[in-house]
Amino acid sequence: MAMFGQVFVKKGKYRIKGDFHHLAAHTPIRDADNAFSLCGVTNPRELTYIHSYGGEAVFFESLSRGTLLASRCEHHACECRGTTYLPFRIYCPDCLKRNRVIDVTDEAKRSARIYTFMVCERSGAFSLLEKPIKFINIAFDGIDTVLMSYLSLGEPRIGMEVVPIFKRRDPSYTILDLSWVPKGTPAEELKPGFEF
């Protein structure tokens, strides 16, 4: 394995560097109860996808800078004008006009509380989170939806006040860069790379 695949955009095109896949041999699957006759074959494969965040890129970039963005429809003729979305939506689902991007970091720090949660003992392949995973959905003042994320410290309960933390050192530029801790958690208890 020489180098993980890397991608840049230049002149509107993807430029790729490094290895995007690695070769591995097929192996036979044999039936141990039936004279080891052939049943099938393994098909090993490793892929790296090239994915654009498009109009949501600003949200994921902002996490690495300690900012939580939401979006709001401000179209004068929209019947749901003023609805604020987090998960961030690029377009209003009602009038399909582009939403305005707004910074809700302070509202999150002031009013976030757990709407529901789940402590999950299992994870799927390729998960980068430690188990158990403490899933939480968060309600905020002034936001009409209930963002899903994960709690990094403490035991979740419905109604618990939480504050956002951001992976500002070595960010992954994914939703994993945003996490939450109980209100009042001291900074020195945060996991490596995370800051308020």
Partner: peptide, 16 residues
């Protein structure tokens, strides 16, 4: 982008 990376486990998204 918003859910799958969180544990890659659908049970979690449902179970909340």
């Amino acid at each position: 982008d918003w859910e799958s990376a969180l544990g890659q486990i659908y049970t979690g998204y449902y179970a909340v």
